[in-house]
């Protein structure tokens, strides 16, 4: 029983983390067609802001990280990505990889490569169904999940969310209906990036911070977006759950290296079976559902 509870808690914590990443990555890909290969590095950047500004209290520090991340994303979209959209997908992918290099090397130059740690704002642990679990982990998980629910609410229940979905679905039509595409693209990129920064900032006390920390999150986050049914925001969330479950199970059963290897092997098999990948736009999920009826 205890083993089950602690496993469930670990899965839930990891789910909260990957849910933020998968949502952010899925949004950016859906709206911009950009595979953000610097996504993991924004997680790392968020965590290092938490480390660098240790003098500031925890909650304001998270907010500072979000603002800095948002400003950086704004600059990247405006100065780097915008002129590259016309050159196609490869150019933006490489540009983001360049951003990733700069983020990693900046962290390396400023903080060095020895693992750093961030003090947890809440210490101690509480008992959940007879299992002692660190309080901060529960807090971070709860905050992540609340943010995820809030995003779903915004996307599906507000006017802004409607516009967002409209531009993702058909940017040209949306712009003909009076939704300006540029601000929507900018908003999506900034928002998606801020989610990565938030994930990093919240996760910081549980991580050993190194400049190359973020790259390892790229493939699992991509995997999460890939698993879900393309076209719905619930897709990446489902994917994040699968990633959390798979990752925790493999780590429980095998050594670190074997677990990683098996995880990536699963990724390759999945891509071979489901090559459409991060396809967000094409099949409207409602119509895809209808089409599944026997004709």
């Amino acid at each position: 029983m205890e083993a089950v509870v602690s496993f469930a808690l670990a899965v839930l914590t990891l789910f909260g983390f990957y849910a933020l990443l998968a949502l952010g990555m899925g949004l950016i890909f859906g709206q911009l067609g950009v595979v953000n290969v610097a996504f993991g590095d924004f997680v790392m950047a968020g965590a290092f802001v938490m480390y660098g500004l240790e003098a500031v209290p925890f909650v304001p520090r998270v907010l500072i990280a979000l603002v800095l991340g948002g400003a950086l994303a704004w600059a990247i979209e405006k100065l780097l990505l915008r002129p590259l959209y016309v050159q196609g997908f490869l150019a933006t992918l490489l540009a983001m990889w360049g951003v990733g290099i700069v983020l990693r090397q900046t962290a390396d130059a400023v903080f060095g490569s020895t693992p750093a740690s961030v003090a947890s704002p809440v210490t101690g642990s509480i008992s959940v169904l007879g299992v002692q679990y660190p309080t901060y982990r529960l807090v971070a998980t709860t905050v992540s999940l609340v943010v995820v629910v809030a995003i779903l609410f915004v996307v599906y229940r507000t006017d802004f969310g409607m516009r967002l979905r409209a531009t993702i679905d058909n940017r040209e039509m949306a712009s003909l209906l009076g939704i300006p595409p540029r601000p929507m693209i900018m908003a999506t990129f900034v928002f998606g990036t801020v989610l990565a920064v938030l994930a990093g900032a919240l996760q910081a006390p549980m991580l050993g911070l190194t400049p190359h920390l973020g790259v390892a999150f790229l493939a699992p986050a991509f995997f999460a977006v890939l698993v879900g049914r393309p076209g719905s925001l619930a897709g990446p969330l489902f994917g994040a759950f699968v990633v959390a479950l798979l990752s925790n199970s493999l780590r429980g059963l095998f050594s670190e290296t074997t677990a990683t290897l098996l995880f990536y092997a699963a990724l390759i098999v999945l891509i071979a079976i489901r090559p459409q990948g991060l396809d967000w736009k094409r099949p409207q999920w409602t119509t895809a559902l209808l089409a599944r009826r026997p004709a």
Binding site: V35, V37, L93, A216, A219, T260, P275
Partner: peptide, 16 residues
């Protein structure tokens, strides 16, 4: 498959 797939697979490869 999309071109993005190769990017992520190759990152995974170097990490492994």
């Amino acid at each position: 498959a999309q071109a993005s797939t190769m990017a992520v697979l190759t990152v995974a490869l170097t990490l492994i």
